[in-house]
């Protein structure tokens, strides 16, 4: 990265040169302190408003049914209750924990499959000259323009032919041909100084060794980002699983919860509990991985 910022710049100096350490911090004037406090207050307020819908979702999930639809709306549950969660967990034919497990398995394997195949494909597209390269690149990027909805029925038929219906494989594999993933990783690979690979090859490494020993370790942020994005896409998909999984035991969590909610369309306490259950794992994963995402996107996709 051209701009590394190990030293703090002054807050709010967004147009200031990055990467240029301010020589020693001088004592701030009162006005500067007031300005800083004000800016912070503004930032915090904006962020609080921005995140408040999520907070409201989690709070509502601890309300009783009538409390959730009271007029005027209130923030704090009165009384606090885990009723909604109990209902979700105890409803007949809704093995929520099983769904959670299914979703975890499916999203994890899906993410792994996307990362492995996309990384393998992106490398030659970034670093090797061969006949057909631009054609493949054009095809892959071109399909980004095709509305995914038209793939549903033909893909269903393929999955059926393969005998994957009503197995988790059906939600892991078919959506794993990620054009975005290939494009994204290729851009990242292009940003890696080629000298490192050349050095490795001078030392006698073949393409595979170069790829696994030099390129992949350098690409960790991008791989983590793609893995997270793939995980999210798979976890959040609510259309495709309904087509291909029909045993209650095989549902994924969001699809399963959605069906549970269908019987309770106006029970906002239940709806919010379901939404909270579906969101909590991805939010946790995101918090855990978020610094990689910033770096991963920062160095790929948009930069050569």
């Amino acid at each position: 990265m051209t701009a590394t910022r190990s030293t703090p710049a002054r807050p709010g100096s967004e147009h200031e040169a990055a990467g240029h350490p301010i020589p020693r911090r001088r004592p701030l004037s009162k006005a500067a302190i007031a300005g800083r406090v004000l800016r912070y207050a503004g930032l915090i307020l904006l962020a609080a408003i921005y995140i408040s819908p999520l907070v409201f979702m989690f709070l509502t999930s601890f309300k009783s049914g009538p409390d959730a639809t009271s007029v005027p709306p209130t923030w704090i549950p009165d009384p606090w209750t885990t009723q909604a969660y109990e209902t979700v967990f105890s409803a007949t034919n809704t093995p929520v924990l099983r769904w959670f497990l299914n979703s975890m398995i499916a999203a994890t394997l899906h993410a792994a499959l996307v990362v492995v195949t996309a990384a393998l494909a992106a490398y030659p597209l970034a670093r090797m000259n061969f006949r057909g390269r631009s054609l493949i690149l054009a095809l892959v990027i071109g399909t980004l323009l095709v509305p995914p909805v038209i793939l549903i029925v033909p893909s269903f038929l393929v999955v059926n032919e393969l005998g994957w219906l009503n197995t988790l494989v059906a939600v892991i594999v078919p959506t794993a041909a990620s054009a975005f993933g290939v494009f994204f990783l290729r851009q990242f690979f292009l940003s890696i100084p080629i000298e490192l690979e050349e050095a490795a090859e001078l030392d006698g490494a073949n393409k595979w060794t170069t790829f696994t020993r030099v390129v992949l370790p350098l690409a960790k942020p991008a791989l983590a980002t793609l893995a997270l994005l793939a995980f999210l896409t798979n976890w959040n998909d609510f259309l495709w699983p309904v087509y291909v999984l029909f045993s209650p035991d095989l549902q994924t969590l969001p699809a399963g919860l959605a069906t549970l909610q269908s019987a309770n369309a106006v029970r906002y306490d239940l709806l919010m509990a379901g939404a909270a259950l579906a969101s909590a794992p991805v939010l946790a994963l995101f918090i855990f991985l978020q610094r990689y995402i910033i770096e991963g996107v920062a160095r790929s996709g948009v930069k050569g």
Binding site: N166, V244, S262
Partner: peptide, 21 residues
């Protein structure tokens, strides 16, 4: 019994019949 919410049901039934399940 296998209780599937109605919405899902009308999708699951034909699909399941296809798969012989």
């Amino acid at each position: 019994s296998n209780t599937i919410p109605w919405g899902d049901f009308y999708q699951a039934l034909p699909a399941a019949l296809t798969a012989g399940e």
